[in-house]
Amino acid sequence: MSGERTPWVGDLIHDEDADRRGIVTDVQGGAVWVLRPELGPGRWWTSEHPERLTLLESRQC
């Protein structure tokens, strides 16, 4: 992620470890990213490695 900001709540990401796209839903204690599927229902998951999250699209403000 050199040169890019760390993904934050509302951002669309690709999680390299899980090989899934999703939306950052929460960041707990600055150490655990809570992610949900990009579309439709599905299992939420977490990541403790923000450097493995590729920012695909920033949240629209």
Rank of each mutant, 00 (worst) to 15 (best):
L55R: 09
T6C: 10
A18R: 12
W45A: 02
L12W: 13
A31Y: 12
R21E: 01
R21D: 07
E57G: 03
P7R: 09
D17V: 12
D11S: 13
E38G: 06
A18T: 08
W33Q: 05
S47I: 02
A31K: 15
E48V: 04
V34L: 04
R21C: 06
W33M: 01
S58H: 08
E57F: 12
R52W: 05
E51D: 03
S2K: 13
D17G: 00
C61T: 07
H49S: 03
P7M: 09
L53F: 01
S2Y: 07
S58K: 15
V9S: 09
D15N: 01
E16A: 04
P7D: 11
T25P: 05
G29N: 13
P37I: 09
V24N: 12
L35A: 07
T46W: 00
Q60E: 15
R43W: 02
G3Q: 06
E4W: 13
I23A: 13
S2V: 07
S47C: 05
G10T: 11
M1P: 08
D11K: 10
W45F: 00
Q28I: 14
V27Q: 11
W8N: 10
S47F: 06
E57Y: 09
L39Y: 06
C61Y: 03
T46F: 01
D11C: 12
L53R: 01
V32S: 01
Q28D: 11
L39T: 11
V27T: 14
E48G: 02
C61V: 08
E48C: 00
R43P: 03
D26H: 08
E57M: 13
L12S: 09
W44A: 00
W45C: 02
V9A: 11
E4F: 14
E38I: 06
R36P: 11
S58Q: 15
R43Y: 02
G10D: 08
W45Y: 01
L39I: 06
L56M: 14
P37L: 08
P41T: 02
G22T: 15
P37C: 10
G10I: 10
G42E: 03
W45S: 00
C61A: 13
G22H: 14
D17M: 06
G30I: 13
R20M: 04
H14I: 05
I13Q: 12
S58Y: 08
R20P: 02
C61S: 09
T6M: 12
L56W: 00
E48P: 00
W44N: 04
W8I: 03
I23Y: 13
G42R: 06
H14W: 12
H49M: 03
W33C: 04
P50M: 01
R59A: 15
I13S: 06
